[in-house]
Amino acid sequence: MNLIQKARMKSPWILHFNAGSCNGCDIEILSCLTPVYDIERFGAVNVGNPKHADVLLVTGPVNRRNERVLRNLYDQMLDPKIVVAVGTCASSGGVFQNCYNCMGGVDKVIPVDVYVPGCAAKPETIIEGLILGLEKLAKMPSKPKKGAQPAEART
């Protein structure tokens, strides 16, 4: 692990995007930022600018109008980056199976690295998911190898 990778692991900047969720998971993500769970002890900061972010936390089943915005945000983020789908409905569509305006999960639109289950996902689980994601992030090369696709899709 080189210095840059090490530094990146200690200061993951997070972009949170609500892709049509019910808010349940969003307020849990906000709870993570507040004193009881305090995600900042891992160096994580919530930012609003996709170009600053290393981690994209997505909640919600992705609705049709949001799909474009989500793809856009993902493309704007610089490599290396990871995507964490927070909540059951972000992972698989969950309870919104019969809803006509839902895509049924974040992985229908962009590649996902970590799935965080729970409806709503608990703050502990979200933090765990983030840490798992960071371990993955640490293994990613800082620069993509020549000819490699940036941010290869999840298997």
């Binding site: 919600g60 089943p61 949001n66 919104f96 809803c99 839902c102």
Partner: peptide
């Protein structure tokens, strides 16, 4: 329309 899911139909 960014969060419309279609719950009434569901």
């Amino acid at each position: 329309g960014y969060v419309h899911r279609g719950i009434e139909k569901a």
